[in-house]
């Protein structure tokens, strides 16, 4: 793989981890409220998929979408400001953590009702297909989301009309506290796409290079006009479902086993006592970003010093994002009403 791609992916994975861990800290400090769903452990999915995409592709995501937005290029300050509910947030402080939007970057939203990403995605894809554009829609969803009716309805329409959608299942094996074999009769999620004759494969989501390559070829097939593609990407979230969930339903050994495969080496600042400590984690060693940074080393792409510098830059970026958020004013009720009626224009209503 190309040096630049690898280095850029490493940077985004490190940024993703640092950003999310900082968000957790800002939540415990009271700067962020509501539901906060974090992404540590799953970075290779968003990073691998979105690096293989074009800026002209659209992205539709869930409530666990900060990293998707960041990788898409939404400035970290604007994401953090949204988590803080501030006026300069990417949704003007109206949406919060679960509802990041950025029209300019074709980041079509974070949706908090499970199963909403499919219909939105096929709608966008319908428009693309109608106009015969070389674009695609990347539709993210979790393993728990495949049991919503919209999954089946949307896959059928996508296949029927050969819509340019890449369905990406972020399979972290849990629907909050319900493990996959207790929520799904068929636990190989990719097999479900067969029912709609959508080509599908299962990818190791702890290896960002695998994710990247699989996405690249899937998108290529989509651009050839063959219709939707489906990737099931196996991953794991290190934290609880959200900051409100200690995640204690998962056996410790399981959490550890997956952390052995940690795609990012940045040490976790665990707020959850049940989880392995930072020391413990770093002692485990074998992890996937080390794998990626090791690879980058062996290829002579970056020296250890350069990686270190990258980490420091990212720490600054995250710090600046927090400062940006803190300095941003709160939106007013006038802003809220303006958002509500933003599409009204000069229309005469009564």
């Amino acid at each position: 793989m190309k040096r630049n791609t690898l280095v850029a992916m490493l940077r985004d994975m490190l940024l993703a981890r640092a950003f999310e861990e900082r968000a957790a800290r800002e939540y415990t400090r009271g700067n962020i409220a509501g539901f906060l769903h974090l992404y540590p452990g799953e970075e290779a999915v968003a990073v691998g998929v979105l690096h293989a995409a074009e800026p002209s592709d659209y992205v539709v995501s869930t409530y666990r979408e900060h990293v998707h937005a960041l990788v898409r290029g939404v400035p970290p300050g604007k994401v953090m400001a949204e988590l803080f509910g501030r006026r300069d947030g990417c949704s003007g402080g109206m949406g919060g953590s679960m509802h990041l939007f950025d029209r300019e970057r074709r980041f079509m939203g974070g949706y908090a009702i499970v199963g909403e990403t499919y219909p939105v995605s096929i709608g966008i894809a319908y428009g693309i297909a109608m106009r015969e554009l070389p674009e695609a829609v990347i539709c993210f969803f979790g393993d728990g989301a495949v049991n919503q009716g919209t999954f089946h309805e949307s896959l059928n329409m996508a296949a029927l009309w050969k819509l340019p959608v890449l369905f990406v299942c972020e399979n972290n094996r849990y629907q909050i506290g319900t493990e996959i074999h207790r929520h799904s009769a068929v636990t190989e999620v990719y097999k479900r796409a067969c029912g709609y004759r959508i080509p599908a494969e299962r990818i190791n989501g702890m290896d960002v290079m695998d994710v990247y390559k699989a996405t690249q070829s899937a998108l290529q097939r989509i651009r050839e006009g063959t219709g939707p593609q489906f990737l099931e990407i196996e991953t794991y979230r290190f934290r609880g479902h959200s900051m409100a969930d200690p995640g204690s339903y998962r056996p410790k050994v399981e959490v550890q086993a997956f952390q052995d495969e940690d795609p990012v080496t940045v040490v976790l600042e665990e707020t959850v006592p049940d989880y392995p400590s930072a020391e413990h984690l770093s002692a485990i060693g074998k992890d996937n970003i080390e794998h990626l940074s090791g690879h980058i080393h062996r290829e002579g792409f970056l020296s250890a010093d350069q990686v270190e510098r990258m980490r420091r830059e990212i720490a600054d970026t995250v710090e600046n994002a927090v400062q940006f958020a803190l300095n941003s004013p709160e939106p007013s009720m006038t802003d809220a009403l303006a958002a509500l009626h933003s599409n009204r224009g000069q229309e005469v209503l009564i």
Partner: peptide, 14 residues
């Protein structure tokens, strides 16, 4: 008559 804003101050005012 407004969707609930995320911002805490606006939420409380709604």
């Amino acid at each position: 008559d407004i969707p609930t804003p995320y911002n805490g101050t606006l939420e409380a005012a709604s």
